[in-house]
Amino acid sequence: MATFSFELVSPERVLFSGDVTSVVVPAAEGDMTVLAHHAPFMSALRSGVVTVNGAKRLFVRGGFVDVGAGGLTLLAEQAVAVEEIDAGRVTADLKDVEEDLRDAKSDEARARLAEKAEGLKAMLAALRH
């Protein structure tokens, strides 16, 4: 099977860089599978799991997808290997965010907190699959 270059970058580090045969990406329009010679494409990322070669699973939240002649690049606001997610910490963070959401005084604060809560829920869902 043909390979292509894939790189997943977060503000903290490069989580993955190498040649792959397939990557499933949680694009804003829905999950998409990228294979070698994929048509050029750009999209926003939604919170979810990136699956590399059908095995390696990486959780991403926010950012952009770019498929071009050079391969696939994901620029994620947050990215972590699924096996590194601490369910207890995420659950506690979600509880705190939901409390803050109930107490939020402005629409802007509610929107920001609701987005953060959705990202944390997606992270917990990644652990169950």
Rank of each mutant, 00 (worst) to 15 (best):
A28E: 15
D19Y: 01
V20M: 04
T21R: 13
P26Q: 01
D31V: 07
V23M: 06
M42L: 15
G30D: 09
S17M: 08
S43R: 00
A44L: 13
D19E: 15
D31A: 12
P40W: 01
S47K: 06
M42P: 03
T51Q: 12
S47V: 02
D31Q: 14
A36Q: 08
M32G: 06
V34I: 15
V24L: 13
A39I: 02
T33S: 11
S22M: 14
T51L: 11
A28H: 14
T33K: 13
A27D: 06
V52N: 10
V24W: 02
T51W: 12
V23F: 08
N53C: 11
T21F: 09
S17A: 12
M32H: 03
P40G: 00
A28V: 13
A39S: 02
G18K: 01
D19R: 10
S43D: 03
T33G: 13
L35S: 06
H37A: 13
V25T: 03
V50I: 14
L35A: 05
A28D: 14
A27P: 02
A44D: 12
M32K: 00
F41T: 00
A36I: 04
A27F: 00
D19L: 15
V52T: 13
V25D: 00
D31L: 12
S22V: 08
G48K: 05
V25N: 01
V24H: 09
L45V: 04
R46H: 11
T51S: 12
P26A: 05
G48H: 01
R46L: 06
S47M: 10
V49R: 09
V24M: 10
S22L: 06
L45A: 04
V52L: 14
A36Y: 06
V50R: 11
F41S: 09
V23N: 04
V20D: 05
D31W: 07
